[in-house]
Computed example of a mutant assay.
Amino acid sequence: MRILFITANRLGDAILSTGLLEELHRQRPKARFTVVCGPAAAGIFAHAPNLERIMVMDKKPWGRHWWDLWKQLATTRWSLVLDLRGSGIGQFLLAHRRRTFHGSRPSMHKVIALSNVLRLKVPAHPIVWTGAEDRRAAGTLWPDDGRPVLALGPTANWGGKMWPGDRFAELALRLTAPGGILPNARIVIFGGPGEEALAAAALAGLPQDRTLDLVGKLDLTVLAAAMQRCSFYIGNDSGLMHLAAASGIPTLGLFGPSREQTYGPWGEKTASIRTDLDYDEILRQPGYDYRRQDSHMLTLSVDKAQRAAEHLWRYCRDD
């Protein structure tokens, strides 16, 4: 039995789909999986169960990437083609069953919308698969000395979604102060390749003796294993925020020009905090232009983020 799993190009959307693959494996433990995804997301599936192949699909002009993909898949008879890209390619493949994601309403979380494709009664929670080598590598990044670890994700794929770095630093200093929820915690900064400059402002305001800069330094699988060693994650709406939530650690997502109802971190130990302006108010602001990199997160104060972090931490501790 072979299952073709076509998922997202972007990291965050791909992470939100991982629960579906895990559920299919639970239902069909002997099935072999071929995963199609974008380059940024490939590492997420490296240790997925019963993985036969990962096919990384780079976009090409005029949709030629779909033609190239079809040529590689057309000779296989698939038990199920699950197309979460809404491409319709499954209609042109030999398949016993086909399921295609056709989008959802903005008020529905993406995890629920994806789970509806398989008509699941319970949403399929995102999951992180790591290998033994990844966990060993992550274990060498900082000593396991019992100190709490506060993880920060100050970067994003668009400047509009980025909370100012100096505010990340101020928040971290408050939370890790002697009277904070994570006293004397080690602070770890996460980010992807090429995002070093985006994280510079946050790093500049943090104490060097207990701050670890991991921006652009880890493979995705090692980064995922490192996330699992952290006590708390606070970050912008990004793929790393979803990775933290899927890792099972308390995760606070910061939102402005995106909908937390759709893309908030998923899980019992997660929460979202947004700017004083809602999504539609931001889009209606004079001069709004999605092509610019100006932050739309400025009305989110450090005080408001601190209260949200403390509330989530107390909730997770009481649970």
Rank of each mutant, 00 (worst) to 15 (best):
D145C: 03
W67R: 08
G19R: 00
Q285G: 01
V188L: 10
Q293P: 09
Q293M: 10
D213M: 13
A199Y: 11
R174L: 15
R53M: 06
A40L: 15
L212V: 02
M55T: 08
H311T: 15
L312C: 02
K304G: 04
R85Q: 07
Q27L: 07
V35S: 01
L214T: 06
L218H: 00
M162W: 11
G63I: 03
N184H: 12
R99I: 04
L11K: 01
G153M: 09
Q72M: 11
R210A: 00
G43D: 02
P207C: 04
F232E: 14
S231Q: 07
S247W: 02
Y290W: 14
N50S: 09
D219Y: 12
E260F: 11
A138H: 10
M57I: 15
T221G: 03
F33K: 00
A113F: 03
A204S: 14
P106R: 11
G235Q: 09
R317D: 07
I181G: 08
R98K: 13
D13Q: 01
E22N: 04
M55Y: 14
V149L: 06
R274S: 02
E260V: 11
D68F: 12
A95C: 10
A95G: 04
A138P: 09
A199Q: 05
R284M: 10
A40C: 03
P265F: 07
P193L: 10
L118P: 00
N50Y: 01
L212M: 11
V149M: 08
T76W: 15
A138V: 07
I44N: 03
I3Q: 04
I127V: 15
P106V: 01
S272L: 15
L173C: 15
E260T: 03
I6A: 02
S87G: 05
R284T: 13
S104C: 12
G12R: 06
G267V: 13
G248L: 05
P154L: 06
L16M: 12
K59T: 13
T262L: 07
W78Y: 00
F255G: 05
Q285I: 01
K60A: 10
G180W: 06
F45Q: 00
T34F: 08
A271D: 03
M108I: 08
D319C: 08
F5I: 13
P126V: 11
D145A: 00
V128D: 05
P29S: 03
I181L: 10
G256L: 12
G146C: 13
H242V: 14
L171Y: 02
Q208Y: 06
R99P: 06
V149P: 12
H311I: 12
L73R: 02
L173E: 08
H25G: 00
S301M: 08
R135K: 04
A245I: 15
R119Y: 07
P207Y: 07
E195N: 08
F5N: 01
G165D: 10
A271I: 14
H125L: 15
F232P: 14
A14R: 06
L51P: 02
R10H: 15
L206H: 02
L24V: 00
A113K: 08
F232V: 12
T251H: 09
A132K: 12
D319T: 07
L150C: 10
L214D: 03
L73W: 01
R136W: 04
F232T: 10
M162G: 04
A308G: 04
R284N: 05
P61T: 13
S107N: 07
A185L: 02
A132M: 15
V111F: 08
A197V: 13
E22Y: 08
Q285W: 09
